[in-house]
């Protein structure tokens, strides 16, 4: 009897537990950034993801492959604040604890020293640069069907 009860209600409890646990990791999608010919070597641009995060995309080479590009997150690896690019100092700066990163995203001063800004995966397809970012689904326009 105890076994039956434990089995039945135990399994039910497991179902409840699975329900509470987030269904899946946030979905990621490949998003178009720019045609390659619009980003010269040495130039960079700021791409805003659908979720609102800013990605610093820099072209460092001219081979035409994805390895030419870096796409750095603006989330500080220390405690998650937003870093911003300071062009006058050629560095990323985190205002929370005065963290400083060089242009490659390596922490060079402050608490995140030795850490690196995380990168986004990039891909070149048909001469266009794509970046993989978190998806924020767009709801359909409220058309009547």
């Amino acid at each position: 009897m105890a076994l039956g009860l434990a089995g039945g209600y135990g399994a039910f409890g497991a179902v409840l537990g699975r329900f509470i646990y987030p269904a899946r990791a946030a979905e990621r999608v490949w998003q178009f950034v720019t045609p390659l010919n619009r980003l010269a070597t040495g130039d960079s641009l700021t791409y805003t993801t659908p979720a609102g995060a800013e990605v610093h995309v820099t072209r460092r080479n001219d081979t035409g492959g994805s390895e030419d590009f870096t796409a750095l997150s603006n989330v500080c690896p220390h405690l998650g604040c937003q870093v911003h690019w300071q062009p006058q100092h050629n560095r990323y700066f985190c205002p929370c604890h005065n963290g400083v990163f060089d242009s490659d995203g390596r922490g060079i001063a402050g608490p995140p020293e030795g850490m690196v800004l995380s990168g986004y995966p990039v891909e070149v397809r048909n001469g266009m640069l794509f970046v993989e970012v978190e998806a924020v689904p767009l709801r359909a326009p409220e058309t009547r069907s």
């Binding site: 179902v15 409840l16 699975r18 329900f19 646990y21 269904a23 899946r24 709801r139």
Partner: peptide
């Protein structure tokens, strides 16, 4: 409606509960 849809289609065992 969307959240109910999420429960029904996306959440683990949501349709069942």
């Amino acid at each position: 409606w969307e959240s109910v849809r999420y429960i029904t289609e996306d959440a683990n065992f949501g349709w069942y509960l």
